[in-house]
Design a protein around this nucleic acid. Structure first.
Lengths: 229, 229
DNA sequence: GCAAAAGTGTTCGCGGTACACCCATGA
DNA sequence: TCATGGGTGTACCGCGAACACTTTTGC
């Protein structure tokens, strides 16, 4: 035995992912229907076990890819859940990650394979184990995070209207925002480019599309700012 | 084998604690000198392995007690560090916790047993493994947290002067604050009780001692506020 | 011509910040 | 009497919040 290293009994190491998406109306979370016992048929976060040769970020990336078919997903470690009896089958510690994706870009086929479904935050069912607690914590973190980093944008398509952006923030923060104040604040962040192009689907008048100034955006993503909404 | 549960090779689970204290001048961190290989004699955070019958919070509490002799320490899970080769001896995932304690209350004897020592944040040596990264993350978290919850007070003795409190916040935030503005903001939080008593040690005139209104304090601790300093 | 969404500026109040002088006391 | 730290109030500015009307165009 190595001095100082006293292995305890087996503890399993899992990673569970809270995957957020946005559909122009609601903030949604992607859940899968568990296809094995215990709790077979019940809703759950997408998860998996940590492999010997990967770190937790790697595992989360792998799990996200398996369900969405997407790479380069914005993702952040949330918290390690470790109650002794959180998983009735075996002692398992799960490190939760939350991810935010552009809902249009995921792979529909994979989602069907996993019996996965998008749920509005207000309609999330009872989940297995402590997954509801994970989700709650993820929502709170996401809210705080969007006030410091412009990560909310990851949820939108490449070109989007100001109204879409506003609805997104309203969905994340779960409150109504004033149209004029919102636009002023976003503009003061100076990371958007207004395009000539209009989106005509939402109204007769049409609404200008915007996109990111990638360079300025990357800057803000590292050098925090404060966006009070 | 249980369906869905594929045990991987052994991965050790550790908890490391970043312990902050304050000595009226500097914010300090408690480090121990490692007494076994590898890295014997080098400085390290206090840590230990997770036991089968406890969760991570329990383990952190136990580890904190072992070094300080203190119960009821303010403590928060920070992050799970999981790089495959972070510990050269064996694959180990360490969940870091940070704790803040009243530096006067810890048990000197225990600290000597562990060859532990308080280091000012500016004089922290190279630590083993990824412990410097853990410390950095803890400092950043502590800074953010003190803007939202009045946890900074945990670092002070029961009775303290406004100047002590100000110096504490200056140490945490690593910047000078204006005396009058600071007092106004703290008073607007409405959680302190000004005592009749004065502390005569710091000046000829003496300076009024304060203490917490425990009830109001507990309130604020749960219902976040924002303290802009 | 009307319905439906887009776009656009101004005013008000509060909170943050900057700033300087007198006080009490022990040495 | 002087040196040291303690205690106190005000004025300005900028940011956040509230708020309403005009424009465009398809039906």
């Amino acid at each position: 035995m190595i001095k100082g290293y006293n292995p305890e009994d087996k503890i399993f190491l899992a990673v569970d992912c809270i995957i957020f998406g946005f559909d122009d109306e609601d903030l949604k979370v992607l859940l899968i229907q568990r296809d094995f016992e215990p709790e077979k048929g019940n809703w759950s976060l997408m998860g998996g076990f940590l492999k010997q040769e990967e770190n937790l970020d790697d595992a989360a990336t792998r799990i996200l890819y398996r369900l969405t078919g997407m790479h380069d997903i914005y993702m952040e470690q949330l918290y390690a859940f470790s109650e002794v009896d959180r998983d009735p089958v075996a002692r398992t510690i799960s490190t939760a990650y939350y991810a935010i994706i552009n809902i249009e870009k995921h792979n529909e086929e994979l989602i069907e394979n996993y019996n996965a479904k998008w749920f509005s935050l207000k309609e999330v069912p009872d989940l297995i184990f402590d997954h509801n607690a994970m989700l709650d914590k993820a929502i709170r973190r996401l809210r705080r995070r969007t006030s410091i980093n412009p990560i909310g944008f990851e949820l939108l398509p490449e070109k989007f209207t100001m109204r879409q952006l506003q609805k997104l923030y309203e969905a994340i923060l779960d409150k109504k925002l004033d149209k004029r104040n919102f636009i002023n604040k976003i503009n003061s962040m100076d990371i958007l480019i207004k395009l000539e192009e209009k989106d005509m689907s939402s109204s007769t008048k049409g609404s200008f599309l915007h996109t990111f100034d990638q360079e300025k955006y990357d800057n803000k993503k590292t050098n925090n700012f404060y966006l009070k909404l």
